[in-house]
Write a protein that binds this DNA or RNA. Structure first.
Lengths: 119, 119
DNA sequence: CCACCGCATCGATGGATGTCAATTCATGGG
DNA sequence: CCCATGAATTGACATCCATCGATGCGGTGG
């Protein structure tokens, strides 16, 4: 399921609910899992700072060596967090020569925020 | 620190960064922790569904008995998730008689989404 | 006054996760 | 050809977390 497919009309339960049957449909279980996976990727101080630091760099591009020292974490840990962010579709990795450059995926943060507000 | 106080001008590191010094300021470590705490509260499928189910109910209000069965989780687990959401400032709890009614905190989701988009 | 019901809390447990040191991989320069 | 450097991977470890069953607590009705 894609992140753009959250409010599919999945009934939220049977009609045997104790008090009231819901006036509109809540998000379905799969949509919730999809959104939760994306939010989990950002629900970490180190990863939030990484995203922000990449966005703050000139050309919105940064290599690992730019990020390790200001973050105060070891290089493997930073690499790990960056991998999580790439797999979540928030960053892209571009290896040029010795260095690996990370960029924001345009619009990824905004669509995530939009989905969050629509829950 | 409050959630409305993310982009305070905290320098992200020393000037000894290896490649480029950053063209604008990234969010500070404390702001990142604050935002991460809020996002963690929502970065769970069960809690996302709970928020959505509460919002979907008539009068945007639901008691635990409304939520346990459609969610497919035990009552203690649902109570636990609701507590997390209340502590994160996303829901309010109102005990009336035998039942505990949960409501969305107006604007909480939207301001969180706005902060996310501004990272 | 007592039994029942809705909900919160407690304790335990299995699994996910953040972190680092050590290692490996890849690339470029001598 | 080998070494130096930047980055990813691996393995280990401690901690956190989602979940449940059992229990406790307050309110309602008989």
């Amino acid at each position: 399921m894609s992140l753009t497919d959250i409010h599919t009309p999945v009934r939220t339960g049977t009609d045997a609910a104790c008090c009231a049957p819901a006036s509109r449909d809540a998000i379905g279980a799969e949509a919730a899992e999809t959104l939760a996976r994306s939010l989990k990727a950002l629900a970490d101080p180190a990863r939030l700072r990484l995203v922000s630091m990449v966005a703050a760099h000139p050309d919105a591009e940064a290599c690992v060596c730019d990020l390790t020292e200001p973050l105060g974490l070891s290089q493997p840990t930073v690499s790990h967090h960056l991998k999580v962010l790439v797999e979540a579709g928030l960053l892209t990795r571009d290896k040029r020569g010795t260095w690996a450059y990370y960029r924001l995926v345009p619009g990824a943060l905004d669509s995530l925020a939009a989905l969050l507000a629509a829950v």
